[in-house]
């Protein structure tokens, strides 16, 4: 490197020979690796902590108090869960639709558990921007399709929780759940 260092001013960009120098490269590379390693814990701490993850344990819910035509809201992992006991009419409406014509095509049968078609269990979160659609509790607007209506930007969901009108791209999500008996479900 000595023969290339002839800068007299303090402008001080290292001369070309130095820049390609292996030592400099190795040092620079090690520095980049070090900086990269520092980013890992700084980003990783943003993820849900162990307590939050563990607190997502399954919850049990007894469906008996939910009469036909009624719905309830539950909380699991900090998220709202809709449980609706559908009427015959609501089920029929949901099944009469031509699935292929839907924005997010899915048959009603695929959105309920077999043998428990009257119970619909959904994430209560609009797939547009995350508001809670109305229509679960008695008296709340249910939208144009006897399902749910999101007050934020006017998305309408049908009685199977599928998006029918408005800006939301997808149907209301299905949480993991199973029937532990005829009237009890375990969410999670």
């Amino acid at each position: 490197m000595a023969q290339t260092t002839h800068t007299t001013t303090h402008g001080a960009t290292p001369p070309e020979g130095t820049r390609r120098d292996f030592l400099m490269l190795a040092t620079g590379a090690a520095g980049v690796v070090g900086l990269g390693a520092v980013v890992v814990p700084l980003v990783s701490q943003l993820a849900p902590d162990a307590q939050t993850v563990a607190a997502g344990a399954p919850i049990d819910f007894d469906l008996t108090p939910v009469a036909e035509g009624q719905g309830v809201k539950l909380v699991w992992r900090g998220q709202i869960i809709f449980v609706r006991h559908r009427t015959k009419k609501e089920i029929d409406e949901a099944r009469a639709v031509n699935v292929a014509s839907l924005r997010d095509p899915q048959a009603d049968q695929a959105r309920v558990k077999q043998g428990h078609e009257q119970y619909l269990v959904l994430y209560g979160k609009c797939t547009h921007l995350g508001c809670i659609p109305s229509g679960t509790a008695a008296g709340e607007p249910k939208g144009e399709f006897d399902g749910w209506y999101c007050p934020c930007h006017g998305s309408h969901y049908d009685s199977s929780g599928r998006i029918r009108k408005g800006p939301a791209p997808l149907n209301l999500g299905l949480p993991p759940y199973a029937f532990t008996s005829d009237t009890k479900i375990r969410i999670g």
């Binding site: 490197m1 000595a2 800068t7 030592l23 040092t27 090690a30």
Partner: peptide, 17 residues
Amino acid sequence: SLLYYTKKKIWARMPDG
């Protein structure tokens, strides 16, 4: 160690050589 040797190399000469 890498920094130490890099430092030694840089400090061996003044900017004018």
